[in-house]
């Protein structure tokens, strides 16, 4: 059974902005799925359409087989959502936020109180249960939203950029929590603009750019397709002329930083040899961190080659 099927989804906002241009997606039950794309690609728009905060212009959505046009409320009852922006009542206590949320999904108060304890503990906020949300830090608020999304025990958990603005340590513990939840069978979809996050958590991935899905595959296949990677070389001595290396794209980042683009079929040894031949001394080297950007470059390059 598919947890989510999106067919031919279009969205034009009332200001005429044409944001989704025929999106197709299928997420199998139990999957850990990433929707990856740069800012403004349309990720939040898709999520908001699934949770009914935004109306679609055209297309169809099914959640566990329930069509949104026919059984929206039934479909919505299976979803838990952690939105990109805080939408908690800042003057309500953490436990009341969860108890109320459970109530909106038909869970009686008695049961809601039990679950509130369970899920506040799972995000390590139990000791803050009687504090109002306003007094929590940003990372805590985000965890509170995760607990809120879990309290009615949805079959599909959707997180919109869950780790944006969250520090490294909390990000790790959040990742672990999400893995545990997925292990017990909950389908998870998250949006992100970090390839690293998708890579370390997810099995399958769709890449969206300008309202279109440009790739939809398993993470391992996608990473294989990451045909080129850039490396930054730090030089021991500054260099004022861009060195030329045959078959490699070389650029100067600064006087003592050189960037080299290396394709999967090329060999880093050649670069080192060439550097020593030209008397350039390397003190250290690192991979350029924004691999998503590189992924896009490789897609755009591939497209250009197709067009030619």
């Amino acid at each position: 059974m598919e947890a989510l099927i999106i067919k031919d989804l279009y969205k034009t906002y009332s200001n005429g902005k044409y944001v989704l241009k025929g999106v197709d997606l299928a997420v199998p039950e139990g999957d850990f799925f990433a929707l990856l794309g740069p800012n403004g690609a349309g990720k939040t728009t898709i999520i908001n359409i699934i949770t009914s905060l935004t109306y679609k212009t055209d297309g169809s959505i099914k959640v566990f087989g329930h069509d949104f046009d026919l059984q929206a409320n039934l479909a919505k009852s299976f979803i838990g959502i952690v939105p990109q922006e805080f939408n908690i009542n800042m003057f309500e206590t953490c436990s009341n936020i969860l108890i109320n949320q459970a109530g909106y999904y038909g869970i009686t108060r008695k049961e809601a109180i039990i679950r509130t304890e369970k899920y506040l503990k799972s995000v390590k906020l139990w000791d803050r249960k009687d504090d109002i949300a306003r007094t929590l830090s940003g990372g805590m608020k985000r965890r509170l939203m995760i607990a809120r999304a879990l309290v009615h025990e949805p079959r599909l958990l959707i997180l919109d950029e869950p780790t944006a603005g969250v520090d490294i340590e909390i990000r790790r513990s959040m990742w672990n929590l999400l893995r545990e939840i997925n292990d017990i069978g909950m389908t998870i979809i998250l949006t992100t603009h970090y390839l690293e996050e998708a890579e370390s958590l997810c099995r399958n991935i769709a890449i969206i750019d300008e309202g279109k899905i440009i790739e939809n595959d398993s993470i391992s296949n996608i990473v294989k397709k990451l045909s080129q990677q850039s490396f930054i070389f730090n030089l021991s001595n500054s260099c004022n002329k861009r060195p030329n290396i045959e078959n490699f794209k070389v650029s100067m980042k600064s006087e003592n930083e050189i960037e080299v683009r290396v394709s999967s079929h090329q060999n880093l040894n050649d670069v080192f040899q060439e550097f020593s031949k030209q008397g350039i001394e390397i003190s250290s080297m690192r991979a350029k961190s924004n691999r998503l950007e590189e992924l896009f470059i490789s897609y755009v390059d591939a497209k250009r080659n197709d067009d030619e």
Binding site: K76, E85, Y105, R148
Partner: peptide
């Protein structure tokens, strides 16, 4: 205030009529 501070969304995304 639910609309302004967005917690009205809690109810809008829920399966309530």
């Amino acid at each position: 205030s639910g609309k302004l501070h967005r917690h009205l969304e809690e109810m809008l995304v829920s399966p309530m009529e």
